[in-house]
């Protein structure tokens, strides 16, 4: 069982884990992900590999707590194990010399765009990074992104830091200014990826997005991760997760992501209750 060697809280509800897995550490390429399961009754869910250290034999994942599974992972501490940890899955992001590229990350997507940006820089591209978060305290990996890019633009939705607004505004400015952009890579909330795709469609700037549909096995066996790209059904876990943004049916993705909304609520409520009981128990233990 892979052991957690480091844990760090990057922002409220966003945690970084460094996990021992020498094989994945050696193999993984930017854009790939792992699927994990925290305990026997838990779900299998995907997380992007944000970084790896082949020498130390570790991989880094960054998780945003949005529901039960991600919260259960969030409770894990350094020294503990993760029950199942499989990867590296998915096709790597094609790293080539494109020329001038823009790497856009939103929210926890910043952690996912980071390995892509640094690989692109290493491959000799001129990399402009645009990262964003709802508010300043949710911004992660600013320093790391600064290292990985030649230029970095930071945005916050509420204007508490950097450019006031969405990541699309600096991109729009660049396009309107007539900057040469040979390729855009974008990872973040679906609505953000769709907005970016709409911006680059007119000027026909090749744009890749990393899709995040619900997955189960991650090996092309179940088809849970179906997405429509260019009118054709693809399995995101094996055909992606990167796809041509201008061909993706984002509406379908949004709908499919809501398939288990009711169940997710039930699950989360149950979990909170359990957590509540645990808190009561541990405070009783302290009191005793």
């Amino acid at each position: 069982m892979p052991r957690i060697v480091e844990k760090e809280v990057l922002a409220p509800g966003i945690k970084k884990f460094v996990v021992e897995h020498p094989l994945i550490a050696r193999k993984r390429q930017p854009g790939q992900f792992v699927i994990l399961r925290v305990h026997e009754k838990g779900e299998r869910f995907p997380l992007t590999i944000a970084d790896s250290d082949p020498e130390r034999g570790t991989v880094t994942i960054v998780v945003q707590e949005v529901g039960r599974s991600t919260m259960e992972l969030g409770l894990k501490e350094a020294g503990e194990n993760i029950l199942d940890f499989v990867g590296p899955l998915g096709k790597p992001t094609p790293i080539e010399k494109y020329g001038n590229v823009v790497c856009i990350g939103g929210g926890v997507g910043v952690a996912e765009i980071l390995p892509v940006a640094s690989a692109l820089k290493q491959a000799g591209n001129h990399v402009v990074g645009i990262i964003g978060a709802r508010t300043r305290e949710l911004l992660i990996f600013e320093e790391e992104m600064r290292q990985a890019c030649h230029e970095l633009i930071v945005c916050t939705d509420d204007g508490t830091y950097g450019v006031h607004g969405f990541v699309t505004s600096p991109l729009k400015e660049m396009i309107e200014r007539g900057d040469t952009i040979d390729h855009v890579f974008c990872i973040g909330p679906v609505l953000m990826m769709r907005a970016v795709a709409e911006l680059t469609r007119g000027p026909a700037i090749p744009t890749s997005v990393s899709l995040n549909p619900i997955m189960v096995d991650g090996t092309g066996m179940c088809g849970a991760c179906r997405v429509t790209v260019g009118g054709v059904t693809k399995f995101a876990c094996v055909d992606g997760p990167d796809f041509d943004a201008h061909e993706v049916d984002f509406d379908l993705l949004i709908k499919r992501l809501q398939q288990y909304r009711d169940e997710e609520k039930i699950s989360l409520e149950l979990f909170k209750k359990k957590l509540g009981n645990m808190a009561v128990e541990s405070s009783q233990a302290v009191a005793n």
Binding site: K41, G42, E43, R68, S69, V216, C222, E263
Partner: peptide, 17 residues
């Protein structure tokens, strides 16, 4: 797979819906 491998029929005790 959801029902057997992940015991979806035991949701919410098991977490996969």
């Amino acid at each position: 797979t959801r029902s057997n491998l992940m015991r979806g029929y035991l949701f919410p005790e098991w977490d996969t819906p």
